[in-house]
Design a binder for these strands. Sequence first.
DNA 1: GCCAACGTTGGC
DNA 2: GCCAACGTTGGC
Length: 154
Amino acid sequence: MTKQYWLFKSEPGVFSITDLEKSKDRTTCWDGVRNYQARNFLSQKISVGDEIFFYHSNSDPSAIVGIAQVVKAGYPDLSAFDSKSDHFDEKSKLDNPTWYAVDIKHVETFKKPISLVDLKKNPKLKNMVLLQKGSRLSVQPVSENEWKAIVAMK
DNA sequence: GCCAACGTTGGC
DNA sequence: GCCAACGTTGGC
């Protein structure tokens, strides 16, 4: 299967790309996603080796700040089973998990983030999921052409 | 802080 | 199955 591309959103006050760089092995478990469309990507579509744009949402400016890669494909999100977790979901059962996670590893932090404003100015990106009105999906696909166009903006 | 857009819940 | 109410996301 050919490599696929994704964009993961995170609020930098919750988990930033700097936090990812500082993590053990520069790797973290991407858990806590509680949206079914995003879940389907995590559980079925995302493969080891796929590349990810790391996006800071609710930020100043909101921007793509770097790249990560998938090092472990979809597996049950354990935080859903932890009653002390903010992401606990009593409806998710161990033998039939509702939610999934992947592991991602830091690849690169951009010297200069690519801001949402700049992304909107690029005509090649006008169909990008991130730029659609009302788009809130926190795990979303990026086409190969979109990936190349954004990397060219570095 | 505001608010538009979206997803989920639950009554009927 | 419809839809109003509610909670959340995230740009501004």
